[in-house]
């Protein structure tokens, strides 16, 4: 029982990261109508800027800032592609484009970072925050969950209490009507891409030391992130937050059970399947009647 609890708590860091990446995915979807498969890859690019600078002997925190800036720039660059050439495309076309961009970013990233070549990823927040039920809860766990909760609260406050937030909500509802009112649609869209780029980069910097820090592994964290976003049906920030943390806990617990631990990477897919079936239940019921 204690082993299960330890594993569950160990899954909290991953859960916090899934939650933050998921909340960023919902933010992007709600405001610029893109199911963004490049979310984690954007953060990975920024994280590898940190790694490259750190390995080259630069001090840690300036390197972190440079990495976050790089993640923001990559996010804005992808946002520019999406708004400039695919602004009027359907949601499915936009999603397909981000899948293509993900493949391209991973290919370039693996080439530039030496594929499976081991890297020295610094731990930004080492150590334990507190003990819970006899289990050490790391600072990284607390921080990722805290960051996800903070982003959720800030997103709500920003969207509901500022003029820019109001314009973003209008833009999400009817992009052309918003543009016809003189709203700077492209600039606002790039702001969304830049903000999510910065947050995902910081989240991945925290989790990278606990994962195999190669470009592909980190970029594919988008799968559990989108599973978390799906739990929130790409609308609710709070349900996405809970979905991400829950996913991390379940993955953590699965790792302590020998018979299922080797299948734990399939858990996000099972969640996706379950949520899709659940969300379709009314249509299936209507059809059956």
């Amino acid at each position: 029982m204690n082993a299960l609890l330890t594993s569950a708590v160990a899954g909290l860091t991953a859960g916090g990261t899934y939650a933050l990446l998921g909340v960023c995915a919902v933010f992007t979807y709600r405001l610029v109508a893109v199911v963004n498969f490049t979310g984690a890859a954007i953060g990975t690019a920024g994280t590898f800027v940190l790694i490259a600078l750190y390995e080259a002997g630069f001090p840690l925190w300036p390197s972190v800032l440079a990495g976050i800036a790089a993640g923001t720039v990559v996010g804005v660059a992808i946002g520019f592609i999406m708004t400039r050439w695919f602004g009027e495309a359907s949601a499915s076309t936009k999603a397909a484009v981000t899948v293509a961009l993900l493949v391209g970013i991973i290919a370039i990233g693996l080439r530039l970072t030496g594929g499976q070549h081991p890297h020295n990823m610094p731990e930004l927040f080492p150590g334990s925050a507190f003990r819970m039920a006899g289990v050490e809860v790391t600072i990284a766990s607390v921080l990722t969950i805290g960051l996800a909760a903070l982003f959720t609260i800030l997103a709500d406050l920003f969207l509901n209490n500022t003029k820019v937030g109001l314009n973003l909500r209008a833009l999400a509802d009817r992009p052309m009507a918003a543009e016809l009112l003189g709203i700077r649609v492209q600039m606002l869209s790039l702001l969304v891409w830049g903000m999510t780029g910065a947050f995902t980069t910081f989240a991945l910097m925290i989790i990278a030391p606990q994962r195999s820090p190669n470009f592909m592994t980190l970029s594919l964290l988008v799968v559990p992130a989108l599973a978390a976003a799906l739990v929130g049906l790409f609308r609710s920030f709070w349900r996405t937050l809970a979905g991400g943390i829950g996913l991390g806990l379940v993955e953590g617990m699965a790792s302590s059970v020998d018979s299922v631990s080797q299948y734990r990477s399939a858990i996000p897919f099972l969640v996706v399947l379950a949520v899709l079936l659940w969300s379709q239940r009314e249509a299936r019921w209507d059809e059956a009647r």
Partner: peptide, 27 residues
Amino acid sequence: SREGLAHVEQGRTVFRQLTTEENLRVS
């Protein structure tokens, strides 16, 4: 629009999720 052209499209393109006053505040 910023040059002074406003277009009221057909189909009553209100921002559906915003209130009446929020719709007005956008512009």
